[in-house]
């Protein structure tokens, strides 16, 4: 599988990562090396095999609809890089 710089740009944009121009070629080469190695899976016939997202036998794990006191707001906001007294702040996002 060939990994182009355009593909690197695309996944970097989706991941909200900015790669410096000079690193892109190297990252593309690295990813291509790894992805090519992963292509070994294509030699395995998996026709009819159900993809296994959960390995354990658990199912129907449910919680009762009962209110548990919320966390103190000050504690939730304490680690925020830019809070005011009531909320997390970000640059203008909505009008």
């Amino acid at each position: 599988m060939k990994i182009t710089e355009e593909m690197v740009d695309y996944v970097a944009a989706l991941s909200r990562l900015a790669l410096p121009e000079e690193e892109k070629a190297d990252m593309a080469a690295r990813l291509e090396q790894i992805v090519s190695y992963m292509d070994v899976l294509n030699t395995l016939d998996t026709g009819g095999v159900e993809p296994m997202s959960h390995v354990f036998p658990l199912k129907n794990v449910l919680r009762e609809d009962r209110v548990i006191p919320s966390q103190a707001r000050a504690e939730l906001l304490a680690g925020a890089p830019e809070p005011d007294e009531a909320a997390f702040l970000v640059p203008r996002t909505v009008e």
Partner: peptide, 15 residues
């Protein structure tokens, strides 16, 4: 499908 789904299938085979 080519990678993620395939890997989940291989996971089933390994299990």
């Amino acid at each position: 499908d080519a990678y993620y789904k395939k890997a989940l299938q291989v996971k089933a085979l390994i299990k």
